[in-house]
Design a protein around this nucleic acid. Structure first.
Lengths: 173, 173, 173, 173
DNA sequence: CATGAATGAGCGTTCATTCAT
DNA sequence: AATGAATGAACGCTCATTCAT
């Protein structure tokens, strides 16, 4: 998807059509216009993302492992769908400020899912003594922020992320 | 700056001129074109950002306080310069992928500054026993990612960041 | 063609489109841009010119008649294609100085054709005793210059050319 | 003069000012505008041209020599004033079709001068038996056309003009 | 389904010209 | 006499979109 790599505005409908090996009017036959096509692509990307999220194993040895799984999964998704992940992380400002906010809506929904997921792990971990007593919501929120940052950094190759995993200053236990 | 809120491509030179209450050709008289104007604005934003970073107190009671100061400063900058911060965090994909990369260059430079700053704190804190022995580089890197994520979240108002400070799962000590 | 009468730079794409009774973007759909359109028009004009040149009768009573035919043909072409001849003779300075020179290339090619044609006549005429022994190349060159001048003068209506034919100071015999 | 090499339309007032090492408004202070400046330059060029024409020796050994002198003078002028001659020969179509015709006016005036000059030579030459009896006006006209063509050819370097002089098929005697 | 042709709207940019100083 | 700053008008060109076939 050119939208992810080039951005919505800098991608022309002609380029889109050429990439898909069809003619421009055909794009307009299937989708209603550029905006609709973008919405469609975005929702498709998020749909794929959500479906991957749902694959996460419900039960693992530890709650900590669940969180690790979540992070690893994001890296995997990025490797598997190198074209769609940018769309999810990029969030072109013009689209983000769009009042109708199909973009913002999905981002918030995805965010909420991950927050809930992590909070669940934290609650369970605290309950069973795996974690010490941390404020679950705020901690989950922060971990999401960290996760987003990690994915973005990887997408834009801003720096190597090697060694980060085992070097983390986090200690939930 | 419209570039930050609307994005480079979706911002027309006419809008820019109107916002500045001048005519379009005048923009081309002072700057050479839209690209040059963008570069100028971006460098101005980063210049302001860097100048604020340099204000950070060299010596504080604890090394932890220095890190906290860094984060608080970013929030302050965002409050003080609500127009420039988006430019720093937005990173339009088209511009980010530009190999010549005035945009990417600044982002990496800023990133490096903050990484170095935090790593310095960590090293010092570990030396004087304030922190336990964490891998400084990797930890600094991760904290930067977290910081970036926090700022982005705030700029785009993706969620409230209340309570995050004292609820942090971090424990460097 | 406006290019011929108005010149390349003074002809706007809008005028061109209006003259052709189409919209401006359509011009850009069929041709790539103003320059390409000019090139196309120029080559079309020269193509027509060359095709007319090829119509010249191979054999005539005298070699002198062949030369006269050549000159008369040029006047005919000018009458038949009043829009294209200016393009061939006008040679806008900007275009002429272009090193890549689609314009210059055609002009030189046309020139060469005519020079060769005349030189052929001269050689043959000298051989069969119709002409006295003149230096064929230099004479042909000069006659081309004269021909060009005549056509130009006619295109720009700089003066009447009546009576020139039978009043010529030339004497090849 | 950029007008001659680049053409009126393709020459900007800024370029003109820079070439003259002054600022743009100063050009407007001294001349009224681009058109007026062009007119001025053109008239200057023609003035210089006419002044050179007046230098032609009134009396020479033969009338033929006078005509030869005229041609040689044109080549000299071109060598001496490489910037102004193009203005005289180029005759941008847009300017030529201008009804007010400062351009056309000068060209016709120059043309008339040369025609008269040559016709005078012819008349005198015929009278004193130097030339055989050719129709003076028509012959003069044709020689002007040839002269124009020669100069143009030289300005645009369309071909070498070597050997043309002594190879001429002309014979006035 | 599919497309070549067409277009209204607008964009980035330039330029001849003016004005305040 | 001289200029930095400013602008109305227009230009070449692109693009999302439509329509006839």
């Amino acid at each position: 998807m050119l939208f992810g790599t080039t951005g919505f505005d800098a991608t022309t409908t002609l380029e889109i059509a050429k990439e898909a090996d069809v003619t421009e009017p055909l794009v307009y036959y299937h989708f209603k216009g550029k905006d609709k096509l973008f919405t469609h692509s975005l929702e498709l990307a998020f749909k794929g993302y959500f479906s991957r999220l749902r694959e996460l194993p419900e039960h693992t040895a530890t709650e900590f492992q669940k969180i690790v799984n979540l992070i690893i999964l994001h890296f995997k998704i990025e490797d598997d769908l190198p074209e769609q992940m940018p769309m999810i992380v990029t969030t072109s400002p013009a689209k983000l400020h769009d009042p109708k906010g199909i973009c913002l809506k999905n981002i918030k929904r995805a965010r909420q899912f991950v927050v809930n997921y992590i909070r669940g792990c934290l609650h369970a971990g605290i309950k069973n003594g795996e974690f010490r007593k941390v404020p679950a919501s705020a901690t989950a929120n922060m971990l999401v922020v960290l996760l987003n940052g990690l994915v973005r950094q990887r997408v834009y190759q801003l720096s190597e992320s090697k060694g980060m995993k085992d070097a983390s200053p986090f200690s939930l236990s």
